[in-house]
C-alpha cells in the first residue's frame, strides 16, 4: 500500500507541475507582451512600462515561472490587476461558494442516481426500467445552463420559491445560503445523475450475471440480501470511477452555472477576469481549478484500492 500511495502521489505532483507549465506558457509566453495585452490598445507607453516592471516581464520566463510557483507555495498568489487586492484573498472568498455548490450537486447526484440505477437494474426489462432509461436520455440531452434557466422560470419567476440568482453569503445563516445554491446544484446534478444512473444500472446488471451471485442465491440468500451484500460492493468500483470523473466535471460546470445564477464563485471569477484581461487572476484560478480536478482523480485512485484490494498490487 505504501509504494502504491507513493507512486500515485508522484504522478499527481508531476501532472500538477506539467499543468502549471502549460498554463504559464499559454498565458504568459504565447501572447507576447502580457502587459500590452492586459492594458488593451488605449494604454500609454508609461503605463505599459510600469505594468511590465510590476509583472517582471523584463526578467527571463524561467525566473518568472519559479517566482510564481514559489509564491504559490507560500500562499502568495500575486496581486489582482483589476480588483487591486491579493489574488489569494479573492480566491479564498470565491471558494466559499464553489466548493459547497460542487459538494451539494454531487450529493444530489448520488442521492438520485444510485437508487434509480439499482431500481432499474432490479426491474430489468420491465416498463419501469424503460422509463428510467428514457429519463436518463432526456437528462443527457438537456444542457445544464438551459435547465438552470427553466428552473429559474418555474421556481423564481412563476412560483417565487427561490431567488433567481445572487448569493447572500454564509454570515446570514445556513438556510439563505443553501437556498441560493439549491437551484444551481439541481441544474448541475441533473446531467450527472443521468450519467451515473446509467453506469450504476449497467454495473449492477453485469455483477448480477456473475457466478457468485447464483451461488449466493442457491445457498438460500434472499434476493435483496444478495443485492445489498454481494452485488453492490462489486458494482461500486465502476460507479466510484465515474463519480470521481463527475466531480471533476461538476467543478468545471460551476463556471457555466455560476454565471447563470450570478453566484460569486471561482468560475465567475475566472470569467470576469478574462473580461477584465486580468491575467494574474486567470492564471491562478485556472491552475487551482485544474488542481482540484487532479486531486479529485487522485483521491478516486486511492478509493479504488480501498474498495478493491486486488488493485493495490496489480495496477501499474
Amino acid at each position: 500500500m505504501g509504494l502504491y500511495l507513493l507512486k500515485r502521489l508522484g504522478g499527481l505532483l508531476a501532472t500538477l507541475v506539467a499543468a502549471s507549465i502549460v498554463i504559464f506558457l499559454a498565458l504568459e509566453v504565447l501572447p507576447g507582451d502580457a502587459a500590452e495585452m492586459q492594458l488593451g490598445q488605449n494604454a500609454t507607453p508609461a503605463q505599459v512600462l510600469a505594468l511590465r516592471t510590476e509583472l517582471r516581464l523584463n526578467r527571463p520566463a524561467v525566473e518568472r515561472y519559479l517566482v510564481w510557483i514559489g509564491g504559490m507555495a507560500r500562499g502568495d498568489f500575486g496581486q489582482s490587476y483589476s480588483y487591486e487586492v491579493p489574488v489569494s484573498g479573492l480566491i479564498e472568498q470565491r471558494l466559499q461558494v464553489t466548493i459547497p455548490l460542487a459538494f451539494l450537486a454531487m450529493a444530489l447526484t448520488i442521492l438520485l442516481a444510485l437508487p434509480a440505477g439499482i431500481f432499474a437494474a432490479d426491474h430489468h426489462g420491465r416498463p419501469s426500467d424503460v422509463a428510467v432509461s428514457g429519463l436518463t436520455q432526456l437528462g443527457l440531452a438537456i444542457p445544464n445552463f438551459w435547465l438552470a434557466i427553466l428552473l429559474v422560470l418555474l421556481f423564481a419567476v412563476a412560483l417565487h420559491l427561490f431567488p433567481s440568482g445572487g448569493f447572500p453569503g454564509w454570515n446570514h445563516g445556513l438556510w439563505p445560503g443553501l437556498r441560493a445554491l439549491l437551484l444551481p446544484a439541481v441544474s448541475l446534478a441533473a446531467v450527472q445523475a443521468a450519467i451515473l444512473t446509467r453506469i450504476t444500472r449497467s454495473a449492477v446488471l453485469e455483477v448480477l450475471g456473475e457466478d457468485f451471485v447464483r451461488t449466493a442465491r442457491a445457498k438460500g440468500l434472499s434476493r435483496p440480501a444478495t443485492l445489498w451484500r454481494h452485488v453492490l460492493r462489486n458494482a461500486l468500483i465502476s460507479v466510484v470511477t465515474i463519480m470521481g470523473l463527475q466531480f471533476a466535471y461538476l467543478v468545471a460546470g460551476t463556471i457555466v452555472i455560476e454565471n447563470v445564477f450570478y453566484l460569486p464563485g471561482l468560475g465567475r471569477l475566472v470569467f470576469q477576469a478574462i473580461a477584465n484581461r486580468d491575467l494574474v487572476v486567470v492564471k491562478n484560478a485556472v491552475l487551482l481549478l485544474a488542481a482540484m480536478v487532479m486531486v479529485i482523480n487522485f483521491i478516486v485512485d486511492l478509493l479504488y484500492a480501498v474498495i478493491d484490494p486486488r488493485l493495490r498490487i496489480s495496477r501499474p
Binding site: 501532472t15 499543468a19 499559454a26 467543478v251 468545471a252 470569467f271 491575467l279 485556472v286 485544474a290 480536478v293
Partner: peptide, 17 residues
C-alpha cells in the same frame, strides 16, 4: 494529462489568448 483539463478550461484559456 489532457483529461485532467476539462474542455471548458481549455476554451477559457484560448479565449483569453
Amino acid at each position: 494529462f489532457t483529461f485532467a483539463f476539462p474542455a471548458i478550461l481549455t476554451a477559457i484559456m484560448l479565449a483569453a489568448i
